[in-house]
Amino acid sequence: MSTSTPLAPATTAVPLAPVVRRRRRRLTPGRIALVAVLSVGLAGTLLPFVWMILGAFKTNAEIMRRPITWWPQAPTLDNFRAWFFEFDMTRYFFNSVFLAVVSVATTLLFCSMVGWALAKLEFPGKKVLITVVLGTMFVPGIVTLIPQFVLVANLNMVGTYWGMILPGMVGAFGVFLMRQFMLEIPDSLLDAARIDGAGEFRIFARIVLPLCRAPLATLAIFTFMGSWNGFLWPLIVSQRDSLYTLPVALALYTSPTGDKGAEFGLQMAGSVLIIVPVLAVFIAMQKHFVQGIAMTGIK
């Protein structure tokens, strides 16, 4: 969200298109109706989150009580406590964070490196590499799921961190994003550095990467989200409780047929523990999100 600035500078800072601007600023009935409609829609959109957060502090009986109570009548932390004492929530949390951090680190490093080679260096095999990367970008993940599992099984990595990490280390999208941005870096800048005697690795580390902060931030966010929200791969490869990520633990332990299937307060508390960190990242970095989407056209 943009930090609140005093009104006067905001209007004077936009000298262009005075007609259109002034038109938009006026408070017409139409504009008020528009904001009202949008507000109602937004309330509806956010309602599940409000219900979830409030519900996490309610007893099971209260969640199902009619008429509904919005604010917890007798706020309780039992739902959260259960996750930490009956289940190993600390562990799942660590697993999710660990996998996300590793996947962000490797993706940023490896994708920017290959992106750099594909953007600015000439080498045999370059065209093939570009074709393969772009060609596989839109292959749905489910296609490679089973062979990936067979491969990981043959490497004896099922039920290990390696098995969870290795297939998620890089992504074609990251290469595409980094390359697109690096193509824009002027050659004159690089030539100047080369004339000054800088080697290619030095140029990459000292000139290119600092210039790529924006796409790196975008890639970091999307990779983090992908890893944090990822479900299918950790579901099939983790295999034991100590390797479960947050979504796997939540889905498996709150299954409607399981013994926590009717413990709605516990379920909502689990959802809160997963969603709140990701929401915090989103709100803190929302500018980069929007930039990234505008930059790439990819969600």
């Binding site: 969200m1 479900f231 889905a251 909502m268 689990g270 929401l279 989103f282």
Partner: peptide
């Protein structure tokens, strides 16, 4: 900006977690 951030919020949240919440919301009562 305000509305954009608000309406975008569901996109970033974990499907599994929101599915659990919606599963509760969809209960008969």
């Amino acid at each position: 900006t305000f509305f954009r951030v608000g309406y975008y919020t569901p996109v970033v949240t974990t499907i599994v977690a929101v599915a659990v919440v919606w599963r509760i919301m969809y209960q008969p009562n």
